[in-house]
Amino acid sequence: MSVPVCELTDSREATDALLEVLRGGRWRPGAVGRFLYLAAHRSMRQAARHPDALVQAVVLHGLLFMSARGPGAKRWVVISWSLTVLHLGLLEDRGRLTGADVITLLRGNLPATTLGRSRWSGLLAIALDLADGRLARRQVTVSPFGDYADSLADAAFWIWLVLRYEPSRTVRAAALAAWLVPVVAVTAVGMRRGSMPDRPRPALLRPAAAMQVVVAVRHALRR
């Protein structure tokens, strides 16, 4: 007898089971509806099973919301909070967000802050990325939450930065390709075969790592 999706503790098994619902249903409206229902149900159950992490997410995003400045800043924080709460199941057996997770979420919310709109925001994002990576490597138990949050924070911040501040069309196009192509490719493969593939590794060999330095330095030197 198969275990219901909402009861699966392993996040990869749960993701594969959800994707199989879509593939098995051939993307018919009924299959899409069942996929959305099961995903939402699992997210709510997993949030309830991680009360400490849920409180951390609410407090952190509450502080960010109160300090948010600029057009769309508060909406950005609300979206970040929603994504965080909906993916607490990725913590698996860990009950709390770690220091590395918190730094990752702060980096992803830089566009909603005054610091995010400064000329040094790109270099600050790189520094925060290095800091959370160093903390993550010291953790005894590792969960998929930090890994996926790190990728989403990178994509969200750097795409926002190049679209808002980068004047060169060539650099914008290269940056968008560096962050969007891997995400789209992995998602498309996962949807097609009904299971989530491994993401490209190591991170330093991906084009996005080099683009971070290019975009950050250009942004810092620009008046």
Rank of each mutant, 00 (worst) to 15 (best):
P71T: 06
P71D: 12
R75E: 14
S82N: 08
L83F: 05
L83Q: 12
L83E: 13
L83H: 10
T84H: 02
L86C: 14
L88F: 11
G89A: 08
L90A: 09
R94N: 07
G95T: 07
G95K: 13
A100H: 03
A100Q: 03
T104A: 15
L105K: 02
L106K: 05
L110R: 12
T113G: 11
G116E: 07
R117E: 13
R119T: 10
W120M: 14
W120I: 07
S121A: 15
G122P: 07
G122E: 05
L123T: 11
I126G: 00
A127D: 01
A127Q: 01
R137Y: 00
Q139R: 15
T141D: 12
T141G: 06
V142D: 06
V142F: 12
P144I: 09
Y148D: 09
A153Q: 10
D154F: 06
A155H: 10
A155V: 08
W158A: 01
I159S: 10
W160N: 02
L161N: 02
R164C: 03
P167S: 08
V171A: 04
V171L: 12
V171D: 02
A175G: 15
L176T: 04
L176A: 05
L176M: 11
L176Q: 06
A178G: 04
A178N: 03
W179S: 01
